[in-house]
Structure formats: C-alpha cells, structure tokens
C-alpha cells in the first residue's frame, strides 16, 4: 500500500514497485479522487482522507486487510512550505500517528516504510558537513511548522521501532523535481537567484528515480531503523544555480527573508528563506553509508536541472 500515491514521488514509487519481482498488488491511497497511477491490473486506488480516524481505520482494517497488504509505504506529507495550521499538522503528524498505530496489531501488515526528510536534522555551524543517522534533530522552538511537523512525525514513527511491525524510516535528501514540494526547485524558478553573501554551502539533491528506487529497496528487504537517502548530486549552491542557467546574486543574509517573502506574496512562489536559512549557510549532506550496506541503495541518477 502506497500512501500518498498521487504525488509525483508516490507515482514513481508505484512504478518502481511494479517493476520489482514478486509484487502482486499495489494499493494506492491519497486524498485526490484522480490519482494518475500507471494503468496496470495490479494497481488499485482509494481516495481517503487519513486525517479522519474512521476513514483511516476502515482503510487499514477494510481494504488493506482484504487485499492482504503486507507493506505500507507512507509518503503523504503536505508539500507546500508556506501553508500552516492545524489541518496541515493533522495531515503530517496525526495521520502518520494514526496509520502507524493502526498497523501495529494488523493481521497482514508486517512492514512500514516511512518517508522522512533531511530537514529534520538541525544543521548549524557546529554540526558535521556529513550528517549520519545519529546527527542531532532540529528541536528549535523557532523552527517553522514545516520543520516541526516533520520532526514530530519522524519521531512518532521512530517510537514504534522494535515492535511487531518492521519499520524503516528513510530520511531523504530533497527530492528535486516539479510538484514535489522541493524548496530548491521553487527557488530556481526565478531568473535571478539571490544567495547569502559570503556563503556557498554544499547541497545534495535526490532525483525522483533514485528516491523511488530507495523506497522499493526498503519495501523489499527486512532491514529496520533509520536510513539516510542521499542523492547523486552534491555541489555548491552557486553551481546548482549555474546548472539551472540562472543568475546567482549574493546579497547580505538579512535581506534574504524579506526579499523572498515579497516574492512569495507577489508571485505566489513557495520558497521560504527561513526554511532554508541554515542550509544556505552551513549546508549538510546526508551520509548514505547505512542505506548502502543494509538496503543496497546507492544514488545513481542525476537530477534534471530546470
């Protein structure tokens, strides 16, 4: 069962699962009525709002049980960084908590693969350039809801590690593609990209194909725990701007937040500098050693720059 199937990442995961030998049935789940999933007799789709406990219960103990689902891949997080509020929190955190709890005593579900984010790590000047799974999480009280929700959901799933259901939490680098909620993708849509003067951090981005491959690998194996999923592209921010054929203009850091708030307000873009402030100063690249040794995942596909 792929929760969040209509999103670009969900569709890519469904495709990767269908290409995996031994997969008999894929049940896609999402809020949207039209999922746009691949035409395949092994694929079904249910439109369910998981923020409603009854709907969630009926999905897990009804459709999933009937279809003898054994693995749940959960990648349904709200994507827009500028949205906030209780409804967003319910989708990001409460639905995740409800899903994991509902699966705990389920007769057929034996494995959960949860999509988490590199942004849960609190990157500062004292943290390592290379972030392994033991790196400190961002518990900053001033962190935006987008980050706080992701940290809370990550820990909610991690709290269930060691139980009957085998859980793999994949902390993915930023999936760099359109409509994935990628802040960097949105940032690079402008012809001129401002960056903080004096800083050119190393960033790492993940292609949709690599992300889907990582989820398919995690779904197919029995490894449990937290795994960092880096992408194949590690480069300075200035090079990412140049690769996208944009003009990079360094400006003093304090001017970045109001400038990009104005851009968001006037043109409806989603990029928020406060979400990316630490990354744009100190960088932080995921260390994928554990995923390579235990999941057999190594990044291979480069992203397509806009």
């Amino acid at each position: 069962m792929v929760v969040g199937a209509p999103a670009p990442l969900g569709v890519a995961i469904v495709r990767a699962l269908l290409a995996t030998p031994g997969i008999e049935h894929v049940l896609g789940v999402g809020i949207e009525t039209d999922a746009g999933l691949p035409e395949d007799p092994r694929v079904d789709y249910r439109a369910v709002d998981l923020t409603h406990p009854r709907a969630l219960h009926d999905l897990v103990w009804g459709d999933a049980k009937d279809a003898r689902i054994d693995t749940v891949v959960h990648c349904m997080q709200h994507r827009r960084g500028s949205d906030r509020g209780r409804r967003i929190h319910a989708q990001n955190v409460e639905a995740t908590r409800g899903l994991v709890v509902a699966c705990r005593e389920h007769p057929t579900i034996a494995r959960i693969v949860y999509r988490s984010f590199a942004e849960v790590y609190g990157s500062t000047h004292t943290t390592s350039d290379l972030l392994d799974e033991d790196a400190a999480l961002d518990f900053g009280p001033t962190a935006p809801q987008w980050v706080r929700d992701r940290v809370e959901a990550d820990l909610t799933v991690c709290a269930q590690l060691g139980g009957r259901v085998a859980i793999a939490v994949l902390r993915c680098a930023e999936v760099f593609a359109a409509d994935t909620g990628s802040q960097l993708w949105d940032y690079l849509q402008s012809r001129v990209c401002f960056r903080p003067l004096g800083f050119d951090p190393m960033i790492n981005v993940l292609s949709l194909d690599d992300a889907a491959r990582a989820f398919a690998a995690a779904a197919a194996c029995t490894a449990t725990g937290v795994f960092n999923i880096p992408g194949a592209d590690t480069l300075p921010l200035s090079r990412a701007i140049a690769a996208s054929r944009r003009a990079g203009v360094p400006i003093p850091g304090p001017a970045m937040t109001p400038l990009y708030a104005l851009r968001r307000w006037i043109a409806g873009f989603d990029f928020r500098y406060d979400l990316n402030l630490r990354r744009f100063h100190f960088g932080g690249v995921l260390d994928g050693t554990r995923a390579r040794t235990e999941l057999g995942y190594a990044p291979a596909r480069h992203v397509a720059w806009p």
Partner: peptide, 24 residues
C-alpha cells in the same frame, strides 16, 4: 566558529579545510 565566517568559510572549504567536528 569558522563555518560562521562569511567568505572565509567558503574559501577555506574550497581549499580543503574542514570544520573540526568529530564526525567530520
């Protein structure tokens, strides 16, 4: 404190300097 220094942090990184965290 070096990664907090504008310009210097980037120049040092390009020249191979690494912040002295244990993991690095």
């Amino acid at each position: 404190f070096v990664p907090r220094l504008p310009l210097v942090s980037t120049l040092f990184a390009r020249l191979g300097v690494v912040s002295g965290t244990r993991a690095n």
